[in-house]
Simulated assay, not measured.
Amino acid sequence: CVPTNWVPMPAQPAELPAMANLLAMGGAHSNGLFVAAADRVGVERDQPFLGRSLIVDSQGWPAAGPASPTDEEILMASVNLADARRHRQLNAFNHVLRDRRPDIY
Rank of each mutant, 00 (worst) to 15 (best):
N80L: 12
H29D: 07
L81W: 07
N21H: 09
F34P: 00
A67K: 05
S53V: 04
L97V: 11
P69Y: 08
L54A: 01
L54D: 00
R88W: 14
A77Y: 04
T4F: 01
R98L: 01
N91D: 15
L90F: 07
H87N: 11
W6A: 15
W61V: 03
S53W: 01
L90K: 03
A11W: 01
R88G: 06
L97W: 03
N94Q: 11
D99F: 09
S68T: 06
G65L: 02
D71A: 04
A24I: 06
A24W: 03
V35H: 10
G65E: 08
L50N: 07
I55P: 10
F93V: 00
G27S: 04
T4A: 08
V56H: 12
G65T: 14
P66G: 09
P13M: 00
P8Y: 11
A28L: 10
R52V: 09
F34W: 15
G51F: 05
D57C: 09
D71S: 14
R85D: 07
N31W: 01
V43C: 12
D71E: 15
E15D: 13
Q12P: 15
S78N: 02
S30T: 15
G60F: 00
I55E: 02
G26C: 01
R98A: 00
I55V: 07
N31M: 13
E15N: 10
L75T: 11
M19N: 01
P10M: 06
H87C: 04
R85C: 05
L50P: 02
N31S: 11
M9S: 09
V35T: 09
Q47W: 02
S68I: 10
A38C: 05
L33I: 08
R86H: 05
A24S: 15
A28F: 14
G26W: 00
P3T: 15
W61Q: 10
N80G: 04
Q59C: 05
A67E: 08
A36Y: 14
A18P: 04
L54N: 02
P8L: 12
Q59D: 04
H87G: 01
D57N: 14
P48G: 03
S58P: 06
M19W: 14
L33V: 13
Q47D: 05
N91M: 05
A36F: 12
V79H: 03
L23P: 10
P10R: 11
L81K: 14
D46W: 00
S30M: 11
S53K: 03
Q89V: 10
L97M: 12
A38I: 06
G27W: 03
P62M: 04
G26H: 03
E44H: 10
E44V: 05
N21G: 10
P69K: 00
W61P: 01
F49R: 00
M9A: 06
L50T: 05
V41R: 08
I74C: 07
G32Y: 09
E72Y: 07
V7W: 12
A82E: 08
A37T: 02
S78T: 12
E73S: 05
V96C: 05
F49P: 00
L23N: 07
L75M: 10
M25A: 10
E15P: 00
V41Y: 12
A28H: 06
H29W: 09
T70I: 04
L81A: 13
S53I: 01
A84H: 04
V56E: 08
D83M: 13
A82Q: 15
A84R: 01
M19E: 06
R45L: 09
A28P: 01
H87K: 11
L23H: 05
A11D: 11
A84G: 07
M76R: 15
N5A: 14
